[in-house]
Simulated scan of single mutants.
Amino acid sequence: MSFNTQLTRLLGIRTPVILPPMAFAAGALLASQVHMAGGFGFLSPTYSGTDAFEREFALARMLLGQPTGALPLGAGFLGWKLDADPAHAALLDVALAHGVRCVWLSFGADLTRWVERVRAHDSTTLVAIQVNSAAEALHAARTWKADIIVAQGIEAGGHGAASAPPLLNLLPQVLRALTVLPAPPPVLAAGGLTSGAHLAAVLALGASGGVFGTRFLATPAALYTPAQKAALLAAPAGAAVRSRAFDALRGTLGWPAGVDGRALAMPAAEAYDGGAPLEDARRVLEDGVRTGDPRAQIVWAGTGVGEVTELQPAKDIVRELHDDAAAHLRASYALLQE
Rank of each mutant, 00 (worst) to 15 (best):
P67Y: 02
S48L: 00
T8V: 07
A120S: 13
W144L: 13
G74S: 03
A189W: 06
E279K: 09
T125C: 09
W255C: 00
T214N: 05
K315I: 02
F53L: 15
A257R: 00
L10M: 08
D293N: 10
V259A: 05
F107G: 13
A137W: 06
P220F: 05
P236S: 07
G157L: 01
R119T: 00
P21G: 01
F40Y: 09
R330D: 13
G302S: 01
Q33S: 06
F57M: 02
G65R: 08
H35G: 07
E338T: 13
R282H: 06
G99R: 11
E320K: 00
E116T: 14
P277D: 02
L233P: 15
P172E: 02
I18S: 05
G213W: 03
K315M: 07
G302I: 05
A189R: 14
C102S: 06
H98P: 05
F53W: 09
D247L: 09
D287R: 15
V211I: 15
G65N: 05
A109M: 10
T179F: 01
L78P: 12
T219E: 03
P236N: 06
V131G: 05
H198G: 13
A109I: 00
A326Q: 12
P186T: 01
K145R: 15
L321P: 07
I149C: 05
S2V: 14
D51T: 09
F212K: 11
P186S: 04
R142E: 12
P186V: 01
T303Q: 15
W300L: 07
L126G: 11
Y47T: 07
A240V: 05
A70Y: 02
D110P: 09
T68S: 11
D324E: 15
E286L: 14
E270P: 11
V180A: 14
Y224H: 09
L264V: 09
F212N: 08
V180R: 14
G158Y: 09
E338M: 03
P67E: 04
A190I: 04
F216P: 13
L311D: 02
I18K: 07
R61G: 01
V259K: 07
T46M: 12
T8F: 05
A162T: 10
A134G: 06
W255N: 04
A75T: 10
L64A: 01
L63G: 10
G76H: 04
V241W: 11
Q228K: 12
M1P: 15
T15V: 12
H121G: 12
A95N: 00
Q337W: 11
L138G: 08
T194V: 15
L205M: 10
T15M: 01
P20M: 01
G191S: 02
A164P: 12
E56P: 13
T219C: 09
A271V: 08
G38Y: 10
D83V: 01
L96I: 03
W80R: 09
V284G: 04
A268V: 00
G288T: 11
V202P: 14
V305E: 05
G74M: 00
I298Q: 04
W114V: 00
L311A: 09
L335C: 12
A314N: 10
Y333L: 13
D260V: 02
A240T: 06
M36I: 03
G210A: 09
V241T: 09
V241S: 00
L7R: 04
L171N: 07
R250Y: 03
A257F: 02
H88A: 14
P86H: 03
L336H: 13
N169W: 11
S163F: 10
